[in-house]
């Protein structure tokens, strides 16, 4: 965490994510749909691993009931 190029930016983001995830839960949206992780741009395998793990969490949850119909869906 303390190695951020923008010094404290990730700490600030982390605090806000803490609040937002609880707000999502309060509004009835699964908070697992939100995730924040810190991966260096030099750590490609770690990034892939994180995303794959996230996908494994998201898939059982299915598409969001709030998903908007795009023009593509309508046509």
């Amino acid at each position: 965490m303390s190695e951020c190029n923008y010094l404290y930016g990730n700490y600030c983001a982390e605090k806000r994510v803490t609040v937002l995830s609880q707000m999502l839960d309060f509004c009835g949206i699964e908070k697992d749909r939100l995730r924040a992780r810190w991966v260096s741009s030099a750590e490609a395998p770690e990034f892939v691993e994180e995303i794959n793990e996230f996908i494994d969490v998201l898939k059982p949850l299915g598409p969001s009931p709030l998903k908007k119909q795009t023009s593509k869906d309508v046509a």
């Binding site: 839960d25 509004c27 009835g28 699964e30 009931p65 709030l66």
Partner: peptide, 10 residues
């Protein structure tokens, strides 16, 4: 519960 909260806020 979660689904009640969801429909309330929606």
């Amino acid at each position: 519960d979660l689904s009640k909260r969801f429909s309330f806020w929606k």
